[in-house]
């Protein structure tokens, strides 16, 4: 479980994973295995939630799956949990993989090293969403409450989540 130790990776590196349409890992690159402290055998065939960090709000994952179901890409700041308890922040770019007939055959995630300032801003928002989720004892109402809060936070700034992410990203010029 989380040790509070933060792990980083190089700016030139990309963390890459592929999953099938159910979110089961079918490919993980060397950088993923290293920062997640996993062997290939431990990762492949497991659900992607293997590296889910308890501080990630459910609302962000809902946004992720909503986007993918709509066959849209999503950029998100995400904190992941390594098997040894360390955590690492990424700027994830998640896209559906289409075959030659335009059918979704799986999902692809490329992740870059984020800037500190962007992580701090995302952390602030996620902290509030998680605090809201913790006030509910079942997953459904926790998600509903955190989803509503995310929407109202974005509405206050007149932004979509995509615009929020890109404002942080362009400001820190990744």
């Amino acid at each position: 479980m989380p040790s509070g130790v933060e792990r980083t990776f190089d700016e030139d590196e990309i963390i890459v994973t592929k999953t099938d349409t159910k979110g089961v890992l079918t490919y993980a690159n060397r950088v993923f295995l290293r920062v997640s402290a996993l062997t290939e055998a431990e990762a492949i065939g497991k659900p992607h939630s293997l590296i889910r960090h308890p501080e990630m709000p459910r609302a962000v994952f809902k946004l992720l799956w909503d986007s993918l179901k709509a066959r849209e890409e999503l950029f998100a700041y995400v904190v992941n949990l390594a098997s040894d308890g360390a955590h690492y922040w990424v700027l994830a770019h998640v896209t559906p993989s289409l075959n030659e007939h335009g059918q979704v055959v799986g999902y692809h995630s490329s992740r870059r090293k984020p800037e500190r300032a962007a992580v701090a801003a995302a952390q602030e928002v996620y902290g509030r969403l998680r605090a809201e989720e913790r006030r509910h004892d079942n997953a459904k109402s926790a998600l509903d409450a955190s989803w509503a809060m995310l929407q109202s936070l974005l509405d206050q700034n007149g932004q979509t989540y995509d615009q929020f992410v890109w404002e942080l990203t362009n400001a820190s010029a990744v």
Binding site: E11, D12, H93, T95, R112, K113, Q163, W166, T169, N170
Partner: peptide, 22 residues
Amino acid sequence: ESGAALAAAAEGRFHRRFLTRG
């Protein structure tokens, strides 16, 4: 990245750039 970045620009979502990092 390239396909999506250009599609976004064509739709007027100019905030979505091409991530050069990595």
